[in-house]
Design a protein around this nucleic acid. Structure first.
Lengths: 223, 223
DNA sequence: CGGAATCCTCTTCGATACTG
DNA sequence: CAGTATCGAAGAGGATTCCG
């Protein structure tokens, strides 16, 4: 938090969190880094409209807050980049709560909005994490709409990262980005041929079944 | 969402949620309403520094988004006020995630910050909801630091609302606001005499034991 | 008197141009 | 490629005024 920065000055966890995360773009930067380290230009590409000065300022405050670190990306890249700290990774459930809430809201702007398969994949993982039935262990690779990411499920816990899977996946999904989007974000079965599945087809089907039914948040009642 | 309003234009739940909730003060308004309906001046009092024009604008957008409604408060008040809708109430887990995350972050601004017992009570409920052991059913009333609120626990679910309990509570806590704050936000046992307990002392003790507190709570201690 | 709209100043944002 | 510098536009903060 920089000197002279705006603060709510309230000793409340919500206000304190928002002092660090509440400004424009900040949580979207965390969202992007949640799928693994990124470099500056990756972020400007994903966050269309941010302006490089603002991105630089946000990255600086997030570092000061201990949410991200600036460091060289792992080999073979070896170039400078940004990654979440443990504190930053602790925001994942929060991002997922936000995502599931946001998708329930009627939304007039759907037409002009940009879509990304990786964002839909985050929804998919969020639903999976909140599912009643445990997802099947395995490594699943996706190559849809020109984006590549992979999901690892291991005894209930899961991990979603950008890029190709570092080991041979148990199943691989590739094909049309829009079809994947409707599947991952809305649970709608894609038309035959839109997505190609290689490998353990049955395990992938079981995986998909775990997130078809989003968990409903209990919430709190006001009488 | 008003015409001409700023939007991320990203088809992602996080971005869509932030289009509605991401502006300054918005989530703090939801936080205040999470403890029951409030009138305009209650909100200006809790959200010191907001400015009446901005509060009015936020209340308008939240209504358009279907997060809150403007309606007469329940009798005997009967005056106009604002309350969360079901959609708004669904944000409670999110606020709690934010609060618990925010309290873990080192915080330089503790000295100048305002404190409220009701905010600490929300932390208390958040910890309770995430506890391994079920909290004991009952109605608990608090009258600390000049604020009054009550907690109802019923078969695992709980509800925290401002004002006096509508029925005779099973236990009642009253006394020093700062002592309650340290207890509810950090799990620190208050000095003898700082808080008075009436009614079912044992049940209240069991309730307190269900809280799951962080090993170390940095940035606490607001005198 | 409570609830909100108006005005004015200051800060932040967004887009582009520019530099190490 | 990774940022910094710049500047018009939009948003926030605070006081005041209007309306019932």
């Amino acid at each position: 938090m920089m000197a002279g920065m705006r603060t709510y000055a309230q000793n409340c966890g919500v206000a304190r969190a928002l002092d660090l995360l509440g400004e424009r773009w900040t949580l979207l930067i965390v969202r992007e880094l949640a799928r693994g380290p990124k470099r500056f230009r990756d972020l400007t590409a994903s966050l269309e409209g941010i302006g490089t000065n603002l991105l630089a300022a946000r990255l600086r405050s997030l570092q000061e807050a201990g949410v991200i670190t600036a460091e060289k990306l792992p080999p073979p890249a070896g170039v400078p980049g940004y990654a979440l700290t443990d504190t930053g990774r602790a925001l994942t459930p929060l991002l997922e709560d936000l995502a599931l809430w946001g998708l329930e809201i009627p939304w007039p702007g759907a037409q002009q909005a940009r879509s990304r398969a990786a964002w839909a994949a985050m929804t998919m993982r969020a639903n999976m994490e909140r599912s009643e039935r445990p997802p099947p262990d395995g490594v699943y690779e996706f190559d849809v709409g020109g984006e590549q990411f992979w999901l690892r499920v291991s005894s209930g816990a899961s991990q979603l990262l950008d890029g190709p899977a570092p080991i041979e996946p148990d199943a691989r999904v590739s094909g049309d980005g829009a079809a994947f989007l409707r599947l991952a974000q809305g649970g709608r079965i894609p038309p035959r041929g839109a997505l190609k599945v290689e490998g353990d087809r049955e395990r992938l089907r079981t995986l998909m079944r775990t997130f078809r039914f989003p968990a409903t948040s209990p919430g709190q009642g006001n009488p």
